[in-house]
Design a protein around this nucleic acid. Structure first.
Length: 282
DNA sequence: AAGAGCCGCAACCGCCAGCTT
DNA sequence: TAAGCTGGCGGTTGCGGCTCT
C-alpha cells in the first residue's frame, strides 16, 4: 500500500502562483507564522493550495531574506568547492550561501555552472556519490595517516579538489614566498573537474595514493621544488552521522592537501576522502 | 514576421527521516 | 514498537520567454 497523498490534488490549485496568492501567504506567515504545520496552513490562510506547495513557495521565493539575481564569482567558487566535496547536497551548499536556496543553487548548477565547467576543460564533472555512513579517519599525521575505515570492510573513495579562497587559510600559517607571482596557482576549475574516484586497498596509505593516483598539477612540483608549500589536514562535520553500534562520533569525511597563497588569495589542492558502507554488517 | 528550438527557473513529485501518537 | 504524519530534500518536469533561422 502506498503512502497517502498530503492533499487531494484534484481539489487544490496547482501551477504558478498569482500575486494575490503570494500576498495572502506572505500576510499570513508574517502575522501568524507557520505554526509549525504547513499542511493545515493553506486552509487557515484561505488558500486553495497544497501545504507543501505553500512551504515551497515561501522558502524558495517569498521569504524576505531571499537574494534574487545572478551569482557572483565568489559564490561560484563556494559552490564548486562544496560540490567537489559533497556532491549534490544542495541544502548543505545553500547553508553556506546566505540568501540562496537549495533550489536556486541546483538550478544554477544544472543550467549554467556545470556547462561553464565543461566548456573550460571538456572533462567530465565527477559525480560524487552521497556516502551512506562514516567511520573515524585518523588525520593526525598528514604524511602517513592510514584509513581506519578499512578495518570495517568499507569502500573508501577519494576525489581531488582544489579551491581558491581569499583569507581563509591564513597567510601567516603559510608564509608567502612568491607574493607577486600568481602563475603557480593552478586554475581551480581545471583541477576540480577531472579526477576519477579511486578505491583504495586496505594496505594503502593515503599519502602514497595521493602521489601515485593524483598527479595534481603543481602539487608535486611544490613538494619537489620546495615552493611555498605546507600541508593542511581537515575534517568536515557538515554531514556527520554515527553508525549504530559504534561509539565513535567523527566526521563523514576528511581532506588532505596543500595550501599556499599569493596576493591575498589562498589556494588549496588536495584530496577529499569519503567512506561508504558496502555491506550491512552492522 | 513567424515558427522552431533553447534556456531558465518555478513548481511538482516521490522518497526518506524524524517526530508523535 | 509500529504506524501515521509532516518537513525536508534531490531529481525532474513543463511553461514562458528569448534567440535563432
Amino acid at each position: 500500500m502506498g503512502r497517502a497523498p498530503c492533499c487531494d490534488k484534484t481539489k487544490v490549485k496547482r501551477g504558478p502562483w498569482s500575486l494575490e496568492e503570494d500576498n495572502i501567504l506572505k500576510d499570513y506567515v508574517h502575522t501568524k507564522g507557520t505554526g509549525g504545520n504547513w499542511i493545515s496552513l493553506p486552509q487557515k490562510a484561505g488558500l486553495n493550495r497544497c501545504g507543501k506547495s505553500c512551504r515551497l513557495r515561501w522558502l524558495n521565493y517569498l521569504r524576505p531574506d531571499i537574494k534574487h539575481g545572478g551569482f557572483t564569482e565568489e559564490e561560484d567558487h563556494v559552490i564548486l568547492k562544496l560540490y567537489s566535496q559533497l556532491g549534490s547536497r544542495w541544502s548543505v551548499i545553500a547553508s553556506q550561501l546566505p540568501g540562496r536556496t537549495d533550489n536556486d543553487i541546483k538550478n544554477y548548477w544544472n543550467t549554467k555552472l556545470k556547462r561553464k565547467l565543461l566548456a573550460r576543460g571538456g572533462a567530465k564533472v565527477p559525480k560524487i556519490p552521497t556516502p551512506t555512513s562514516m567511520v573515524p579517519i585518523n588525520f593526525s599525521n598528514p604524511n602517513s595517516f592510514a584509513l581506519n575505515a578499512m578495518d570495517f570492510g568499507l569502500k573508501t573513495s577519494v576525489s581531488a579538489f582544489n579551491q581558491v579562497q581569499a583569507n581563509y587559510y591564513g597567510n601567516s600559517a603559510y608564509p608567502l614566498k612568491h607574493a607577486s607571482d600568481t602563475s603557480f596557482l593552478p586554475n581551480s576549475l581545471d583541477v576540480i573537474q577531472g579526477y576519477p574516484e579511486v578505491s583504495l586497498n586496505s594496505t594503502d596509505w593515503l599519502y602514497e595514493s595521493l602521489i601515485d593516483n593524483f598527479p595534481l598539477p603543481g602539487l608535486t612540483d611544490f613538494q619537489e621544488n620546495g615552493g611555498p608549500f605546507d600541508g593542511f589536514v581537515s575534517t568536515t562535520t557538515s554531514s556527520s552521522q554515527e553508525i549504530s553500534g559504534l561509539s565513535h562520533s567523527s566526521s563523514l569525511a576528511g581532506s588532505y592537501g596543500n595550501s599556499w597563497s599569493a596576493n591575498g588569495i589562498g589556494e588549496q589542492m588536495g584530496i577529499f576522502v569519503k567512506v561508504e558502507s558496502e555491506s550491512s554488517n552492522y
